[in-house]
Simulated scan of single mutants.
Amino acid sequence: MAPYQNVPLKGGQVNLRTRKARKIQNKGSINRRWLPLNALRAFEAVGQHRSFTGGATALSVSQSAMSRHVSGLEELLGKPLFEREATGLALTAAGEELLPVVAKSLDRIEQTLNAIRDDRQAKRALRIHIPPSMLQQQLLPLLHEFRIEHPDYRIDVSSANVTGLPATNTDMAIVYDRPNVDDFVTDLLWMVRVAPLCSPETAKAASGQAVAQFLSQQELLHIKLAGQPRDLLWSNYARQLGLDIDTDEGLAFDTAIAAAQYAMGGTGVTLADIDMFAPEIAAGRLVMPYDAVIEEGYGYYLKLHPDDLSDPAISIFRSWLIGRFMDMRTARNPVVPD
């Protein structure tokens, strides 16, 4: 994939071609006395839309103006910010690093200006992404608690079934993922422990049967992970316990809570987080017919950008959330004195 330059043509059209006409060069230190604000606005609009046409429409300017601004910003930085792919524009590594910072800064400036103009206190909303099952099973009651303790903080919650970081702009995100190293501040909330769960009626069939025999006779309920085989979690479970079972068949769901609700309806066995669904297990709506719990290798992590640690709202919510999950981990794994 080659970096490109946008060259304005007649009629306001823009031609994308490889940058050969002039070399991108660094121009020394950048300071706030001459920050290229128009160029940053143009870059943010094009980056959000992955399109010069979409960015130009959003800002009500011409494509040629957008092209000049982005090209000038690239020259200032000495690095290309976009590259061409078969499906359109893509951010380079430099673009990926710059876009969230610019977008967040412009959001905060916009919110503060509107607050001052409207003679009200500037309160920006804290944007947090939470996976659907985690939101419904754990975070909704926790958010109620936080609002009672901190009523002055505004929170906007988004939820999508993704593995890892979502594509939307957020201040922080709880992600379901394997342990990994990246540039984000990452706090482990808990590691997932799974076991086969089913309705009380289905569990009756487990009497006198080994776990492999029971599972072979039941419909396995799968939870799909983006880009992974539909039976990944069940096949990993069978491999860890040495079970000779066919994991290919059965229904697949986008969320753990949907699979659990189907199982509670009377048929099927879901491989579910026993801590997330502890209330349903305690109430007898879900049954764990075998003491066959494993850590599946995935966990829930809180992620945010290092630059945001200085933001009071983010810092307070992060500390509060980590503390609440620490209490829950202690409750599920109490320390027994010697």
Rank of each mutant, 00 (worst) to 15 (best):
I257T: 11
L59P: 02
L197I: 10
P36L: 13
N26Y: 11
A313T: 01
A283C: 01
I24R: 12
A173K: 02
I148E: 12
V192T: 15
A65G: 02
L16H: 11
A93T: 11
L225M: 14
D231S: 09
A260E: 03
R117F: 09
S159H: 03
G95T: 03
R193K: 15
A259W: 02
Q137D: 00
H129T: 09
I322D: 03
M264G: 01
E96P: 04
P306Y: 04
E83L: 15
N236A: 12
D248A: 08
R239S: 10
L9G: 15
A252E: 07
V192Q: 12
I316T: 09
E149Q: 13
D171E: 08
T18C: 11
P196L: 12
T270P: 00
L139W: 05
M264E: 06
A205P: 01
G11F: 15
R41C: 13
G72V: 07
E295W: 01
M1A: 15
A256V: 00
R124A: 13
G284H: 10
G284D: 06
I174W: 04
G299S: 08
K303W: 01
R332K: 13
V61E: 02
A122Q: 08
L215E: 02
L143H: 05
D182L: 05
E83N: 05
Q5W: 12
A282Y: 00
G78Q: 06
T247Q: 00
R124M: 08
R329I: 02
L113S: 12
P3G: 12
L271M: 04
T267Q: 12
K20G: 13
M172F: 10
T202A: 15
E249L: 08
V157Y: 03
E110N: 11
S62P: 01
E296F: 01
A258N: 07
D246V: 02
L140A: 12
D118C: 07
R50D: 00
F184D: 06
D152E: 13
Q137K: 10
A65Y: 10
S133V: 03
F253K: 04
D177G: 07
V287C: 00
Q25W: 09
A313Q: 05
F325G: 08
I130S: 03
E110H: 14
P196N: 08
L286M: 05
P132N: 05
M288T: 07
P100M: 11
Q48K: 15
A56L: 05
A283N: 10
A58F: 07
H305V: 02
L59M: 14
T202L: 09
Q217D: 12
K204E: 07
G95P: 05
S105M: 13
N169W: 12
D182N: 15
G164H: 08
I148G: 03
E280D: 09
D308A: 05
